[in-house]
Design a protein around this nucleic acid. Structure first.
Lengths: 215, 215, 215, 215
DNA sequence: ACTGCCGGGACGCCCCGTTGGT
DNA sequence: ACCAACGGGGCGTCCCGGCAGT
C-alpha cells in the first residue's frame, strides 16, 4: 500500500501548501487544510507528526526545487554570471507556477522571525550568490570595485524582495503574478551595469534576447 | 487626565510594537503584550477596540514616520535623486533604531497576504519612487534608457527586501542589525550606476562622503 | 442640584428599563444602557452601586406601581372580585404602556431562578390573590367548592403567563402588544364561571360592559 | 465507535440541561457545563458547534418529547378534550421529572424575547390547542359561546405560566416541584366549567378519578 | 499498515462590571 | 459627574493523542 500512501501524502502537502500560502503558518488551521481536499485528520497525523513537521516538509520541497534548478544550471552553463541570472529567472517562474514554492517562501519568511528550529532563509541564497560571484570574478566578468560579500548580500535580499512582491504583490496573488512577469528582468537591467564588465553585459543581453527576454 | 491617558497609550503601543516585531501579528498574543509592561487588559481595551485596531495604529505611526521623513527631505533638498537616496538611508536607520518602524514593516508584510482591509505596503513606496524619478528625469539625472515605472517597481521592492532583511536578518534581530549597517549603501553602490548619469553619480558620491558614508 | 440629579436618575432608570426589557438582565450590558441615552458610566455608578442595584430599583418601581394600583382599586371598590378583575386589567394595560413594568416583569422572572437576593415574583401576586379571595368568600361571591389557596395559585400563575405572553408574545413586542389587548379579558371569560356564583358573574359582566369590555 | 459518541453526547446534553435550567442561557457558562460532569471542551466542540447550537438541541429534544406525548395520546383517545387534559398532565409530570424538559422551557422563554432565530414557544402549543378545540367542538363537548381562537390562546398561555411556575416556582426548584404536584389539576378544576358541557365535565371528572386524580 | 472518529485541554480575543484620581 | 484603567472570565477553536475499524 505504499503507492496509495504516497499519493495521500502528496495531496496533503499540496493542500497544506495552498493554505499556508494564503493564510501563513499561524493563520492556517489544520482544519482548513484538511477540509480543503477532504483529507482526514488521522491521515494527516499519520504522515506528519505535527503542524510544524508539515510546514518543514513543504520548505524542504521548496529547497529541493531550488537546489535541483541550481545544479541543473551549473551543469549546463560554465559562466557563473549566466547561472546567476538564469537561476533568478527560473526561481521567479517557479514562484508564479508552483504553490509549494510560494508556500515555502512565505513559511521561511515568517518562521525565522519566530523561534523556529533551523530554516535559514536569506543565508542560503546569499551563500550561493557568494560562491557564484567568486567564480564570476575568476572569469573576469566582475567590475574591479565590486565587493563580493556585500554584493551577494544585496542581490539575495533584493531577489527575496522581488519574490515577495511577486508572490503577494497585490490583494489576490494570481492576478498580480500575471501582470508582472518580468520583475526580475527589471532588476538585472538596472543592477548588472553596476556589477559586470561591459563585455559581459553585452553577452548577457544577447543571451536574454535568445531566451526571448529583453534586458 | 488626558496626559496620563496619552502616556498609557504610548506604553501600550510600544509594548505591542516589540511583541509584534518579534512574534508577528498572529503569533503575538494580547496577553504577551500586556504582560510585557504590566499593562492591564482593560487599559488596552480602552484605547484600542481590537487587536486589529492596535496593529493598524502601529502601522499608521510607521507611515507617519516615513511621510514626515519624506516631507522633511523634500523641503531640504531640491534634487530628487538625493531625496531618494537619503530617504532610503533614513528609513534604514529608523529600522535599526525604532521598534515601531520594524513592527510596522512586519505587520504590513504579513497582512497584505491575508485579506486585510486597506494597507498598501509596496504600492505606496512605489508611488513615491515614481514621483521622485519623474522629477529626477526632469532634472536630467536619469540615464536615457531608464523606464520609470519598472525602475520604481524594482527599487521599492528591493528596498522592501532590504528592510525585511534588516528587520529579521537572522535569528535575533538586534545582533543582525548591528552587523549590516550599510546594507542600503550597498544597494546604491550597485544600482546607481545603472540608473543615473555619470555626473549625478559623482555628485552623489560626494554627498555620501560628506555624510560619512561610502558609496 | 437635587433636581438635576433626580432627572438624571430618571433617565438612567428608563434607559435601563428599555435595555433590560429587550435583552434581559445578563444580556444587557451597562455599556448598552449608558450608550443608549448618552449617560456616563460615572453618573450611573453615582446613583446605583451596581448593576444588581439598578435592576432592583426597576423592580421596586414596578412593585410600587402595582401596589398603588391595588390600593387605589381597594379604596374605590368594596367587592373583592371586582378588585381582582379590574386589577388584572390595570396591570395588563400597564404592561402594554410602561416599559418599566415590562422590564420589572422580565427581571423578576429571570432573577428568582438564579441565586438572587430576595425578589419573590409569583408569591406576592399569589398572596394578594389569596387575601382577595378570602374577602370574596365572605361576600358570598365564590362557588362553594372553590379551594382558596389552590385557586389563588392558579390565577396568579395564569396571569403571569398572560403577562409574559403579552410582553413578549411574538418576535417584536410592540406589534404583539397591540394585537392582543384583551388577552386578560379572555381569561376571565373562561375562568370566572368556574369560580364565582352565577349572580356575581352577571354583575361582573355588567361592570365589564360599563367599562367598554366584553366578558 | 458510534456508541461511545452517542453516550458522550447524551452526557453533555444532560449536564447542559441541568445548568441551563438553573442558571439560564446567559448565566450558564460552558465551563460550568463542562466541569459538572468532567466533560472536555473538545468533546463539547465536537458535538455542538456553539453554545447556541447546544441550547437548540435541548429545545429540540423538549419539542420531540411533547410531540411524542401528543401523538401517543391522540392515538389512544378519540375525545379531543381528554387529549387536552391528559396532555397537560403529562407535560406537567415531565416538567417535574425531566431536566431537559425544564431546561427547554426556560430556554425558549428566554430566547424569544431576545432576537433568536426560529423557536416559537407559545405559538406551537397554541396551535395544537386550537386544533384540538376544533375537534372538541365537532364532538359537541364545548359550550356554545366558547370562541376557539381566544380560548386556545388563553389556555396555552396559562399552561405556559403554570409550567414556568412549576419549573422555577421558588428558590430551589426541586422542593417547589414537590409542593405543587397538582397545579395543573387546579387549572382544569376552575377552567373546565367555563369551557365544556356539563356532561363532558362529569365524564372528565370520572376519568380523573380513574387516574387517581381529583378534578 | 493506514485511516478516521472522538475526545482533551489550552489559550486567544473580546468585553464586561467596577473602582481610583480629578 | 467622569475619564481612565482593571482584571476576571466567556466563548470559540485550535493542535493534538487514543482507540476502533478496514
Amino acid at each position: 500500500m505504499q503507492e496509495r500512501a504516497f499519493r495521500t501524502r502528496r495531496v496533503i502537502v499540496e493542500a497544506a501548501a495552498e493554505t499556508f500560502e494564503s493564510r501563513g503558518y499561524l493563520g492556517a488551521s489544520l482544519r482548513d487544510i484538511v477540509t480543503r481536499n477532504s483529507i482526514s485528520k488521522g491521515a494527516l497525523y499519520f504522515h506528519f507528526r505535527s503542524k510544524e513537521d508539515l510546514a518543514q516538509a513543504i520548505v524542504q520541497e521548496q529547497y529541493d526545487l531550488q537546489d535541483r534548478a541550481l545544479g541543473d544550471l551549473r551543469s549546463r552553463h560554465g559562466r557563473a554570471i549566466r547561472v546567476i541570472v538564469e537561476l533568478s529567472w527560473h526561481v521567479a517562474r517557479m514562484c508564479r507556477e508552483d504553490a509549494i514554492m510560494r508556500a515555502g517562501i512565505r513559511l521561511v519568511a515568517e518562521h525565522n522571525l519566530a523561534e523556529s528550529p533551523a530554516l535559514q532563509p536569506f543565508r542560503s541564497l546569499a551563500g550561493v550568490m557568494e560562491e557564484l560571484l567568486i567564480e564570476a570574478r575568476a572569469q573576469h566578468d566582475l567590475l574591479p570595485d565590486v565587493d563580493i560579500p556585500s554584493a551577494a548580500a544585496f542581490m539575495s535580499a533584493a531577489l527575496e524582495g522581488l519574490q515577495r512582491a511577486c508572490v503577494f504583490g497585490s490583494k489576490r496573488g494570481a492576478k498580480a503574478r500575471q501582470e508582472r512577469p518580468s520583475c526580475v528582468t527589471n532588476m538585472w537591467r538596472y543592477v548588472l551595469p553596476g556589477v559586470v564588465t561591459a563585455e559581459c553585459l553585452s553577452d548577457m543581453t544577447a543571451v536574454a534576447a535568445e531566451l526571448g527576454r529583453e534586458l
